[in-house]
Design a binder for these strands. Structure first.
Length: 506
RNA sequence: GCGCCCCUAGCUCAACGGUGGAGCACCGGACACUUAAUCCGGAGGUUGGGUGGUUCGAGUCCCCCGGGGCGCACCA
């Protein structure tokens, strides 16, 4: 921290916070003047709070264990009683009480106790005991200030509620709000579990380009940037799909990437401009293997992250216990609409069905897109319990293999839970000529100004000409899965540092 | 992009259009078993910004700007 930065913040904030910071600085300087380093370079700890709590659970009150420990963490509470004080020390594992008797403290410990503020990082050494009231404590004889919190932490009881500050200063949110920690612990446990599962299935984790000449693999508007060295415009990836399939062509028969994707589109409770997806490709598999993998990943993530299959989301209670039904889209639509639709139906008929169910058809939409919109707007919202919806129109699946007996439908599934889509997968289209033809159609649409068309990627077609084996591919929306598991409704609550407008300078 | 709502001390919240308060945190003091410690005293404010408007008087009503939230539209 430089003086320049300090001065800036001094000018930018109200005088009272400056007074609070100045007071904490004064305490730090006092410690330094007494010869105690306020910023030691390291600290060796020998115990974690939760480990002590577990090992000494149920101990009688007023017990001395004889066990000497060194702890480190943040001070979250101090209760001073003249010559006896108590402090709560919180580390990454949990928290434990420090018992601080003036007569037992070293000179440094006494000075640190005098100078300590809520939020400071400290180290403590002492014997594990229980207090007269029976609380497990460390009867400290030594204290070290490890780093001072110059800024006061949010109210320990009420935490931090302003969402703006919670997102902009996530570190403060994390240390003030246990529920925020809970959500991100779920996130990281879920992702770790999925990674373990992929590893156990012998998938190789790979990294593919984020900066791409052409943003392919999905249908979305990309972010743009520029390479100075090459003097070319580039796009941030909207999906890793095409590169992952090229790796399968190259001989990596099972690959996956936990990929940050970027889409220059609307921001909402459910949409973040950068979001995380797990994409996986498995040679010699088809859409059925994709569903098996998806089911194992999601169920395994739930088990690892929250230890149960039941979740309450919004007004819904859902049971994620596998297996989940695999039902044909066209059957589900027939059941829901009372009429059987198919991409080969006359467009006007399909438009009529749309209108009858409150879907306003866009004149540009072909029959496949009309069927898809019926699914998306009419069927999907009612799919609460987990279900694999199988079989989607080729028209809206430009990279998926068509069904053996129906050239207008693709071997593709979507996983639907609580009326939302959580995963998507298909048997990959591996016939170069057919892929080229699909690109031609979509590129023509794109040149007519259709933003929703997939761009033609000739390099990818060339790759397919070297031979993509039969391959199953899946994509799982990680952020939305975490929302479901953590039972939170805003995508920003599961992203550590969500994209926000620039902070106001006023 | 459109509509509705929110922004008051470091944090959490009050204040009919009539002198901006409380709890926690902070400062000084007391206190040897507390745990949202307690008790006594004190300090802390350009009410998101606006030498915009209405009014005798604006935190409060209106307008503009900034940020955020929710809903709708696009999207996963």
């Amino acid at each position: 921290m430089t003086n320049e930065t300090d001065q800036q913040s001094d000018e930018a904030t109200a005088p009272t916070i400056d007074a609070l910071i100045a007071e904490r600085r004064r305490k730090r300087e006092t410690l330094a003047e007494q010869g105690f380093d306020p910023y030691p370079s390291r600290f060796d700890r020998t115990a974690l709070a939760d480990d002590l709590q577990e090992r000494h659970a149920g101990l009688e009150k007023d017990t001395r264990t004889g066990e000497q420990v060194r702890l480190a963490g943040r001070v979250t509470a101090v209760r001073r009683h003249g010559k006896l004080s108590f402090a709560t020390l919180a580390d990454a594992s949990g928290s434990i009480q420090l018992l601080l008797q003036a007569a037992a403290l070293s000179d440094q410990a006494a000075a640190v106790l005098e100078a300590v503020d809520l939020g400071d990082w400290i180290g403590a050494e002492g014997e594990v005991i229980t207090s007269r009231r029976g609380e497990l404590s460390v009867d400290a004889t030594e204290l070290w200030l490890l780093s001072k919190a110059l800024r006061p932490l949010p109210d320990k009881w009420h935490g931090l509620t302003e969402t703006d500050t919670r997102y902009r200063q996530r570190e403060v949110d994390l240390l003030a709000n246990p529920d925020s920690r809970r959500v991100f612990d779920i996130r990281f446990k879920a992702i770790a579990a999925m990674r373990r599962h992929m590893e156990s299935e012998h998938y190789v984790e790979v990294e593919t380009p984020i900066l791409q000449l052409q943003a392919g693999g999905a249908i979305a508007r990309p972010f743009s940037t520029h390479s100075n060295a090459l003097d070319i415009d580039l796009h941030l990836r909207i999906a890793p799909e095409l590169y992952l399939k090229r790796l399968v062509i190259g001989g990596y028969e099972r690959v996956f990437e936990i990929a940050r994707n970027f889409r220059n589109e609307g921001i909402s409770t459910r949409h973040s401009p950068e979001f995380t997806a797990l994409e996986a490709y498995r040679a010699f598999g088809d859409v059925t293997d994709g569903m098996d993998l998806t089911e194992a990943l999601v169920a395994g993530a739930a088990q690892a992250a929250i230890g149960r299959f039941g979740v309450a989301f919004g007004d819904s209670e859902v049971d994620l216990t596998p297996p989940w039904p695999r039902l044909a889209l066209l059957d589900l639509l027939e059941e829901r609409l009372g009429v059987r639709v198919h991409p080969t139906d006359p467009v006007d008929d399909l438009r009529g069905v749309c209108e009858a169910h409150g879907v306003t058809p866009n004149p540009e939409w072909g029959p496949g897109k009309l069927v898809f919109e019926l699914y998306d707007q009419v069927l999907l919202p009612g799919l609460v319990a987990p279900v694999f919806v199988c079989g989607f129109p080729v028209e809206v699946s430009p990279l998926a293999r068509h069904t053996a007996d129906d050239p207008t439908m693709a071997d593709r599934f979507e996983l639907c839970i609580v009326g939302r889509e959580f995963a998507n997968g298909y048997s990959e289209l591996n016939i170069p000529e057919e892929q080229a033809a699909r690109f031609e159609v979509s590129a023509a649409a794109k040149s007519r100004g259709d933003d929703e068309a997939h761009p033609a990627d000739l390099a990818f077609v060339r790759s397919l000409q070297y031979g993509l084996p039969p391959t199953a591919g899946i994509g799982v929306g990680i952020d939305r899965l975490i929302m479901l598991l953590a039972e939170v409704e805003a995508i920003r609550d599961v992203i550590l540092f969500p994209m926000l407008r620039p902070e106001s300078t006023e």
